[in-house]
Simulated scan of single mutants.
Amino acid sequence: MADLRAGLLGIGMMGRHHARVLRELDGVELVAVADPGGDPHRVAGGLRVLDDVQQLIGAGIDIAVVAIPTRFHAEAALALADAGVHTLVEKPIADTSEIGQEVADAFADRGLVGAVGHVERFNPALQQLRNRLQAGDIGEVYQIATRRQSTFPARIGDVGVAKDLASHDIDLTAWVAHSRYTSVSAQTAHKSGRSFEDMIAISGRLSSGTVVNHLINWLSPMKERVTVVTGDRGTYIADTATADLTFYANGTASLEWESVSTFRGVSEGDVTRFAFAKREPLRAELEAFRDAVGGAESELSTMREAVHTLAVVEAALGSATAGGELVAIAPREA
């Protein structure tokens, strides 16, 4: 079987990594790149840098990756759908969930693979966590809390921290829990002088009854990427920056110190840090995209799942605007 002819729209900060991985994938040939801003990171190699998505389609591509600013996602994705090109769009899927639904429907109606780059699904620690939760290792899941903090990114100019980063946490939470959001409330802060928020705190609930919390900002002098899952048998902590997964089991040994036993509620048990293979998430994601085009099942975020994620982000931003009131999430087609 001939290699899939791949096109890449956008070769900026994120696109340069897609270019590297696409060139290294078996069964894929990167044949065209396009970016109206040129090639600031010199990743085009021997390829001419095309101007737009139509020129990219004209190169005769089978698959495409869209890694351009959010406000251009929908227009590019719809053009690729019309051309019959299987496409992975970087997150979020579009500016709004309503437009995102149009994109999702366009790919579904044409029988094309349409995916969104929620790459945390391919973080080894989160894949291990999802499998262990599904196997019932922790019992009933009570709470999932995430923290995603870092310095301000020069690469982002058209969205706030909610669409850029909270979308990761919302997608990974629903994915590891096998459960969608039913409600959220949130508070935001604007400290950088931009119209977009640079800090958000979200609380919510999944359809399973699990309580969720997300703390996300661009205002911290360190980088933190942590997911904490607490259940009736203990707590998992996934550090997605290092792809480490640790389990803190509830204790089974009796405590003779009465005041400590009463205060703690559950006692401290064994601590296990798991060892497993750690592959680059972006490589695993693009391999899954390639294989999905060939008919294989995968853990890729579908476009319809990405619409739900964006709807949750919108609900959180709406809640913050309304002073933190609880906002219900309307169910959507899976």
Rank of each mutant, 00 (worst) to 15 (best):
R48K: 12
L215H: 12
T146M: 06
L112V: 01
G323C: 08
A186W: 08
M14S: 10
A296W: 06
P40R: 12
A64K: 00
R147S: 11
L88Q: 07
A44N: 03
D137H: 09
R147G: 07
G269A: 15
R205E: 09
G139D: 12
L286K: 10
S301G: 06
G209W: 09
I156Y: 12
V53H: 13
F289K: 01
A74Q: 06
F263N: 03
N131Y: 10
L317I: 09
R233F: 07
H178E: 15
L206P: 02
T252D: 13
D270T: 10
D198W: 10
Q55M: 11
R233I: 05
A76P: 00
T182H: 06
S220G: 04
E258Y: 13
G318M: 14
E90N: 07
S150Y: 08
V65Q: 03
N217A: 07
G269W: 06
F276T: 07
D62V: 01
E120Y: 13
A79F: 02
R48V: 13
Q128D: 10
A162N: 08
W175N: 01
T230D: 11
F72H: 13
Q128G: 09
A275V: 07
I93V: 07
L56V: 04
A44K: 01
N217E: 08
E280T: 04
V211N: 08
E297I: 02
L112N: 02
I138L: 15
G58R: 02
L129V: 12
R48A: 10
V43N: 02
S207A: 09
R290F: 12
Y236W: 14
H178T: 10
T240H: 14
E297T: 07
V43P: 03
S319F: 11
F72L: 09
V260Y: 03
R110N: 01
L133T: 08
S192A: 13
T151G: 07
G294Q: 15
H86D: 14
E140W: 11
L219M: 11
S179T: 12
R279V: 08
M222L: 05
K278V: 11
I144C: 06
P92W: 03
A74V: 01
V53N: 04
G160V: 09
A284V: 08
T210L: 04
V229P: 00
L245H: 13
D158Y: 11
